[in-house]
Amino acid sequence: MSAPAVSYALNDRPGVSDETRARVRAIAERLGWVPNRAARALSDGRAGAIGLVIDRPARVLGVEPYFMQLVSGIQDALADGTTALLLQVTDNAETELALYRRWWAERRVDGVLLVDLRADDPRISLVTELGLPAVVLGEPVADDGPPCVWTDDAVAMAAVLEHLAGLGHRRVGRVAGPPEFVHTRTRTRAFAEQTRRWGLTAAPVVNADYGAQDAARATARLLAEPDPPTALVFDNDVMAVAAVGVAQELGRSVPDDLSIVAWDDSPLCGLVRPALTAVDRPIFERGAAAVRVLAEVVDGGAPGHLRTADPVLVPRGAPARRGDRPSRTLTLNRLIG
């Protein structure tokens, strides 16, 4: 039997009879042969890989559970092994752009996933110019850009502020991520809208880099104000956990004196003491959905934006309503009276 006939049989191509195809496959199975997926991808003009660049400092990325959950969802969608994930970490925007150019020039990827969308993000124009298939993990900001897989952060912020208002808080602060990110701006805008809606006073929004040290400094700054907030909302779990230690060092009990809410629930929020109220977003599902949408783009489709399930607030360790709780001064007076 000729080599082309064997190839046709194993790759489901016309040119051989059903009887020959069945005989070749039986022999291949008996010999333990498996197809070379890389070679098959090349023959189809495909790289057999998708790319993901995470532009974050390694010291921050190494302790942030968000990206581990996201990559887990991406890998789950790639579990059949026909497509690999090419992952690169950098802390330089120009390096990230250069990676996309090189990957596409060398056909090392069939498409890319874009995270941490920025205002006027140069990556959008670059992938459009290159013709590089792409999917954005973030909210839509332009009608003519790549498809987006996104979660409505405004819905989450509404739930957070309603929860804090229900506990009797009147002054709420926020430690946000880097201001250039679109999702930071969305949350900041929603924070301002929801504090007005619930009649709350918004303390200054302080931006940080998602790391514990930056968050500690931001927390200390907010709590040192003449009229400090009684509740703080953080843009990730690492920063919220760091704030617990700062509050305790400053003599603030969590959650009795200070309520803390973390964005993106993770094991950290449940393990720290006291456990933290957190926003639970479908991060794993979002990563898997982005891979499926990208596969459609690579195949020549034009899928629309995909909005995931709304976030859910997970309350933990909430204090009694602030209006129902005696002040520390009153309690002390009773004890010594």
Rank of each mutant, 00 (worst) to 15 (best):
S17M: 07
W33C: 03
L78T: 05
W198N: 13
W104R: 01
F67M: 00
V6N: 11
A262V: 00
R196W: 10
A38Y: 15
A224I: 14
D153E: 07
G199E: 02
A134F: 10
C269F: 09
R316G: 01
T151V: 14
A247I: 02
V293E: 00
A39E: 14
D257K: 01
A262W: 02
A28W: 11
I50P: 05
R108W: 00
G48V: 06
G211F: 09
P204T: 01
P267F: 05
D209E: 09
L31S: 05
A79L: 07
P267S: 04
A134G: 10
A224H: 15
D116A: 08
P326N: 02
T201I: 13
T90P: 13
G287S: 12
P282G: 03
V71S: 06
L70T: 01
A224S: 15
A203V: 02
R101M: 01
S7E: 05
L258F: 09
P204W: 02
P57H: 12
V182D: 07
V241H: 04
R286Y: 04
R23C: 09
D265G: 01
V244E: 03
G168D: 07
A98E: 14
H183S: 15
R321E: 14
R292Q: 03
R252A: 03
L276M: 12
V112C: 01
L332P: 04
L222A: 12
L332N: 04
L306P: 15
L42E: 15
T128A: 14
L223C: 07
R321Y: 13
